[in-house]
Every structure is written in structure tokens, then in C-alpha cells.
Nucleic acid binder design. Structure first.
Lengths: 110, 110
DNA sequence: TATGATGTATCGGATGTCCTATAATTGTTT
DNA sequence: AAACAATTATAGGACATCCGATACATCATA
């Protein structure tokens, strides 16, 4: 764990949340199968989400029409739909508006 | 709603999460009572969390020793403890490491 | 063909975040 | 004192996110 980027995981407050948002963002760069997505999340968050986390989330995103899927061999490649791309923009805007201040303050100190 | 800062709330993916983190950050700037904290969250997120959201979260943070409280009249003023301040630093570092990329890309486009 | 590795998927349980509804307490106003 | 407003707080329910356990299909290899 943690060899790529992640500092200590905080014990203080729960850092759950925004998984679907994060997945959409990852898929916006490149279509991937479930394990690849999980690996991307590990690089960023320091812990690889398990099958019980990742597949229900992908299923829900599919149900909402935000991602599509295509079976290739044993892999299922997920990709962002047009609808997903539009919604991701909205979500990014919202996210940056909500948390931007925390970011900027942190970067000033670095 | 939304008169101060917030763009459209995304329907796509759930933007729940990081409430405790956000509260710690708010308290790091200024000690406040519950309603003031809720109002700060409204300014940032566009929707004011209700009593059933805010007080359980504050109770949990108190249980963890991250915030202290002092009754002043009918208000209960919450403040960051030393422990809370330390943990907030860890959490900020983690948060920025996880989501920094999304931020930077968004700001480049603006 | 058998074995193992890889990838997908669900189940059940825990926890955090969200709501509405309800209620108790304290301070102010009439 | 009575009525009202503000603040705190809990109860109960919904849902996303997290885990470990389990299972099955596919592909490569021995």
C-alpha cells in the first residue's frame, strides 16, 4: 500500500464517499475493466477497493446510464456514456466549488 | 439555495461524504455552534444539513476527542481540539493527494 | 485435461451521511 | 407568566460506501 502517492490515511474522520464520482472521472480518461479501475483507485487512495465495493458501484452507474460495458474475453470494459460525460462535468464543477477553498489553502502552505 | 456559491447539484453520482472532514476544517477557522456550522456548510454545498445530520456527526467527533464543546446560553460552541488539529492536517494531506488531480485539471480549463 | 490465475459478481454486515419528524431546553418578548 | 423563537438533540429510515466470504467463468499453463 501507499507506494505511489498516498500519505497516511486519516483515522480522524471517515474519508468515504465520492466513489461513483471518482470512477466517472477515471473512466473519462480511459475505458477500463473493473480490476483496472480498482487499481487506479488504489494508486490514488492507497487502498484497493474490493470486488464487493467496485462492482455494485459500477452496476449502479450502468443502471443510471452513465457508463456502458462491453465484454472482451474474461474482462468487462466499462466506458463513459455521453450522458455520463455531461454529468461528470456538472459533478466536477460542484466538487471544485465545494472543496476548492480547502485545496487552495493547502497548496499555499506547500 | 445556491445564492452564495454553488452550481447545480449533480444528479449523476452521489456527492455524500466527507462531512466530518468538512466540519473539522470549518472549525479550524473559527469555533462555532451547531447552527453556524450548518450555515457554513450551506454556503459551500448549497444545502443546509438538518439537525439530524449535523448533531450526530458532532457527537461522533466529540467521542473521538477531535472537538470540544462549551455551553454558552442556549448555544453549544464546538471547537477543534489539539488532537483534532493534528488529525485535520493528516486528512487535508490525504484529501489533496487523492483529489488534487481532478482539481488541477478543472482549474486549467477555467 | 487438470491446475492455477484472473476477472466478474453477489451476499451480508458495518458505518457515515442524508432526510423528516419529534421533543426538550433556553432566551426573549408580550 | 405565557407565548414564541432559537438551539440542541434523538429516533427511524434510506442509501452509498466499505469490508470479507463465496462463487463462477475464462484463459493460460503444466
Amino acid at each position: 500500500m501507499n507506494e505511489e502517492c498516498c500519505p497516511e490515511t486519516p483515522k480522524c474522520c471517515d474519508m468515504r464517499g465520492l466513489l461513483s464520482f471518482h470512477i466517472l472521472w477515471i473512466l473519462s480518461r480511459k475505458s477500463m475493466n473493473g480490476q483496472e479501475i480498482a487499481e487506479e483507485l488504489r494508486k490514488r487512495k492507497g487502498a484497493k477497493p474490493t470486488a464487493g465495493t467496485i462492482y455494485p458501484a459500477l452496476k449502479e452507474l450502468r443502471n443510471k446510464g452513465l457508463v456502458g460495458m462491453e465484454k472482451i474475453g474474461r474482462a468487462t470494459v466499462y466506458s463513459l456514456s455521453e450522458e455520463g460525460r455531461k454529468e461528470l462535468q456538472t459533478a466536477c464543477k460542484y466538487f471544485c466549488s465545494v472543496f476548492g477553498e480547502i485545496f487552495h489553502e493547502y497548496e499555499e502552505k506547500s
